[in-house]
Design a protein around this nucleic acid. Structure first.
Length: 478
RNA sequence: UCCCUAGUAGCUCAGUUGGUUAGAGCGGCGGACUGUUAAUCCGUAGGUCGUAGGUUCAAGUCCUACCUGGGGAGCCA
């Protein structure tokens, strides 16, 4: 008899069907004559209820069916006599696949704190919350590939190890096979990287963008979707040292095309979640609602599913940095001196400013464009005003910046001039500049932080709870 | 990295202005119960109070340093 997944059994199983189900015990309860086992195999958030007639099984076996143990159950599906489920499995045969010592198994059939589960990240998949989060995470990864594939984009694998440190996107992790205790030295006493594996200093990538541009300026549209590493000492609910990023790069796209793509892309993925992950979303929404009950009324956010639907139904507000500064200067908190940081044209917007725009003023996702060139990267397309660049940041409620992107500077002279101004080594970047030397075209791209997006879709509050094994300062367990 | 905050039983927490033998709920274990839904009821075991120093007749409680977690900020995705 073939094993059926619990999702399949609950969806199309009929009373009288003989089936085999395999999974892990969530709870066991019952009385002298009958026991009920909630069995979960990860295929769905819902459990299959196994009904055990105590008299027909070995007492020792039943004693070992504890929370966390794995079972193979053969039996007949019947309509449930109890409420709470339509169908349940009457056990004929139970095989204990793997025991779980109830005194040692850390996941109990009760509510655990997210902090505790983070310390047990190897077992937290076995909870409803993390089951839901990781099924949704998978669905979103799939939705991203589906979206770009249908749009004719090519999935480009840009390198994880890079020798370029010119990207300016943050501190990098060094990659080396040199002896850390006794590295070979040059005559000047510095580390001799010519003896290192690559014959030069190398690091883990902080962005695939520059290589992505090379691909786009031949293939037309590409996207990357891979791990990204930042050695920043960031300790927040929105930062990881190792995270996943999606970076589309498109030839012949100007900033407006770029914004249109970003908005359509985000909406398409959110729609996929609503269409395909409703069971998990409902669970997370309920969980969130319980948590929100402890908060004062005015601090509560929109229910999860409503929030996703809202983003889907409304156009993102688009405005320039300069317009945003004007709005901030005319805002109540500015006039009442409630902002901690100054608001002045030329400053980088602080989270409090972004949050005001998104959560208070517009109450809607916002795309800010045309930032001062001095607070943005060298590769961004310079505007004619000589003050701003064609940058765009997509700001989401609670998350803040979820996408950062720009139209890229395609003019060789302007780009080189800017690189010199910003002390970017032009020589080392010969390969990047070659795209501007040979058949340069208008092009654009952006980066989406995958985990930040998952935060938004799942309503989770800490980025460490939407990646399986988070890497953060002082933490690389598992 | 900075600011705030916390660390007491397997988990979530209480522990009074410093004062005898450190408490509860949940979980575990034993028992009861004819179908339960985080079952219920009765009973029971379980603690070097984050670590190291200090103040004091006396420290879970006060002080200092360090470690770890959480929240916020910066950096950014």
């Amino acid at each position: 008899m073939a094993r059926l997944k619990i999702k399949e059994i609950l969806k199309s199983g009929k009373a009288g069907d003989e089936v085999v189900a395999k999974g892990w015990v969530r709870t066991k309860r019952g009385s002298k004559n009958v026991n009920f086992i909630a069995l979960n195999d990860g295929s769905t958030i819902h459990n299959l209820q196994i009904v055990v007639d105590v008299e027909s099984f070995d007492e020792a076996l039943i004693r070992e069916i504890n929370t966390g143990a794995s079972l193979a159950v053969t039996g007949t599906l019947v309509e449930s006599a109890g409420s709470g489920q339509n169908i349940e499995l009457n056990a004929k045969e139970i095989e204990l696949l793997g025991k779980a010592d109830p005194e040692k198994f850390p996941i109990q059939p009760k509510k655990h704190s997210l902090e505790f589960l983070r310390e047990n990240a190897h077992l937290r998949f076995r909870t409803n919350t993390f089951g839901a989060v990781f099924r949704i995470r998978h669905a979103m990864a799939f939705a991203i590939h589906k979206y770009f594939n249908e749009k004719g984009f090519n999935y480009l694998h840009t390198p994880i190890i890079t020798a370029s440190d010119a990207e300016g996107a943050g501190q990098m992790f060094r990659v080396s096979t040199l002896d850390a205790k006794n590295p070979p030295l040059t005559e000047e006493g510095t580390i001799d990287y010519s003896q290192d594996f690559f014959g030069r200093p190398t690091n883990l990538t902080v962005s695939g963008q520059l290589e992505g541009e090379l691909g786009a300026l031949a293939l037309g549209e590409i996207y990357t979707f891979g791990p990204t590493f930042r050695a920043e000492n960031s300790n927040t609910t929105r930062h990881l040292a190792e995270f996943w990023m999606i970076e589309p790069e498109m030839a012949f796209y100007d900033l407006k095309d770029n914004m249109d793509l970003a908005e359509e892309f985000l909406k398409s993925c959110i729609k996929y979640a609503l269409d395909n992950c409703m069971d998990d979303l409902k669970f997370l929404a309920d969980r969130l609602e319980q948590e929100e009950k402890n908060k004062p009324q005015d601090q509560r956010s929109m229910p999860l599913i409503e929030k996703l639907q809202f983003v889907l139904d409304n156009d993102f507000i688009r405005l320039t940095y300069t317009e945003a500064i004007d709005i901030l200067k005319n805002s109540k908190p500015y006039k009442k001196n409630q902002f901690q940081f100054p608001v002045e044209w030329g400053i980088d917007l602080q989270s409090e400013h972004e949050r005001y725009l998104v959560e208070k003023h517009f109450k809607c996702p916002v795309i800010l464009t045309d930032y001062p060139k001095d607070i943005k990267a060298f590769y961004m397309k310079q505007n004619d005003d000589n003050k701003t660049v064609r940058a765009m940041d997509v700001l989401f409620p609670q998350i803040g910046e979820i996408i950062g992107g720009s139209q890229r500077e395609e003019d060789l002279v302007k780009l080189e001039t800017r690189m010199n101004e910003m002390n970017i080594p032009v020589d080392e970047m010969w390969w990047y500049l070659d795209t501007r030397r040979f058949g340069s075209v208008v092009h654009s791209g952006f980066g989406l932080g995958f985990e930040r997006f998952i935060l938004f879709v799942t309503g989770m509050g800490n980025i460490r709870d939407v990646i399986a094994f988070p890497r953060t300062p002082k933490n690389a367990e598992f």
